[in-house]
Nucleic acid binder design. Sequence first.
DNA 1: GTGAAAGCGCTAACAT
DNA 2: ATGTTAGCGCTTTCAC
Lengths: 340, 340
Amino acid sequence: MRLRGGARARTTLSDVARKAGVSPITVSRALREPHKVSDKLRETILGVVDEIGYVPNFAARALASRHSGIIAVLGPVLGSPGFSPVASGIEDRFQAGELRTQFANIGLDASEEARQLNLFVAQNPAGIIMESVAEFPVNRPLIDEIDCPVVQMMDTSLEPLDMGIGVCHRSAAKLAVRHLLSKGYSKIALLGGNKDIRSRRRFEGYREALSDAGLYQPGYVFDTEGRNSVADGHSLMRCINSRYPEIDAVFCHDDELALGALFAASQLGLRVPEDLGICGYNGLHFSGVDDPPLTSVSLPLYEIGFKAAEMLMAALASGERKEGAVELEVALVEGASTRR
Amino acid sequence: MRLRGGARARTTLSDVARKAGVSPITVSRALREPHKVSDKLRETILGVVDEIGYVPNFAARALASRHSGIIAVLGPVLGSPGFSPVASGIEDRFQAGELRTQFANIGLDASEEARQLNLFVAQNPAGIIMESVAEFPVNRPLIDEIDCPVVQMMDTSLEPLDMGIGVCHRSAAKLAVRHLLSKGYSKIALLGGNKDIRSRRRFEGYREALSDAGLYQPGYVFDTEGRNSVADGHSLMRCINSRYPEIDAVFCHDDELALGALFAASQLGLRVPEDLGICGYNGLHFSGVDDPPLTSVSLPLYEIGFKAAEMLMAALASGERKEGAVELEVALVEGASTRR
DNA sequence: GTGAAAGCGCTAACAT
DNA sequence: ATGTTAGCGCTTTCAC
């Protein structure tokens, strides 16, 4: 397989230098550190760059400078609605800087996490922001070896690797369940899986809150199979209703599951919130599609992304791998799906 | 800002070579073209690689070999449900190869398309797969300059750049509208924007089909504002109902808009399909959340992605930039939202 | 403020 | 099947 392109040689820094009558390094400076070059020269150089359409070669740049300018962002479900605000936060913070972000999906598998980490290490990333899926710090040694700052996102319950920012999923889940209890619901199901560490923390919070009230029922925990959360919530809710008609509230692992549950309830003739209380997780907005509007645990998703980026930049600026985890607050936003 | 990592020097190919008692190029071959190295040597070398934890430096590799091994995938809304099967098709085809795919969002803006193309050119991609958003081939000169094969996805109505694969959105839209007409609907609205070239093709198909029947009404075309299609469909449908209660069917730009319209209809007390026919676009599955199940124009999304990747690999194997567009079939999948 | 020299880590091309 | 040589295009370091 011929992976190279055509015969046409790309223009290089030297081409620009020759045409501008300066040395290559001056062109390099004009492009990366304009203030270090005299106004006159800079103007000439940038003119030539434009004229001959010079595009820098990132591989050469990365090789010579020992950094690629890439910030690697690793997460389990980058395409999910819940991740989207996080990504926006990250991109907004890096906006207009010299760093480029690159996203990679690691699914729910610690070994894929390791594989992707290795792929990025090969690229000398400037930094890594990750939402780890490993329950146990199996990839800890790998991360320790990495020559760049690492920010661990989303979950503060993990043993921190370098820097961390997130929420406590366990207490967030407790908050949700206690809210349901305070509204008079008592047979409360959990919808959605034991899939990764954050899910398990939510499960723990759910179990603790119910155990405290003497109402925990292992049979009321329902795992999802697929990834299309709305449809999952829908089918799961139907299944719950047929097998455990006594259940009077559901706490869902994410808002899409909750939305699916809401649709199913409506089709089953269950009144929400009278017959069934529904509480979601993440605090997404469905602009009226959810009728009644869903109660949800609102996470500062955008802020997590933004601050993760900020911590990374601070570490890069100082040149140190700092330690320290930041925990942000969550809030229960009461809609109409739990009011009674 | 110190972008470099810590002081620890990364192990290099030469380190491996020294330890294994061979020359660097032999290590390089053992890693990339194992069959060219004797079994014995290969075993020794891979042992050393494992032992000292050698990770190749992609920048050096890219610089020396003049290709980065990256396949750039550019599209307007990579996170959308409609794009997801396309991405799977692409990734499945490249699975286990030496090429890595890298995705980038270009939004709905031809200038962002140009910017991203330039960013990738700087990385010497092995190939590019793109879903262009430019109505006019403004980026054509840029693409002509690119030293690698380019596959244009989704829309066969564009002047082909190198290779193309997709469907004819105009006739697909016609198919949908004719279906609605055949079911006895006559006041048919169009939901969803004039945002990119594919949207406009659908609009053209819609207009043609209705004009042929003498039923085209410019006022029945409704543009969306936002990106959250379900919510958009929902609010737009409510607005349509209040302003044009006579409308008896809607053809939606995508299935999520259609889903939103379906929810709104149900809340408005409109019976689907009796009072209102709804037809979507893309052929996604909502597993029972859509009740009644939506009629939709089904596109071979996965196949488009898979074949785009295939065309690219064929071009790489032959070393030529081939020309030629492939048009795939679409099908109208009748649900219960247009049956009457 | 500008330049010369050296080399980042790897692979292509050409030996042997 | 393995090695030698040269160089990819840029940035670092140090000199002026």
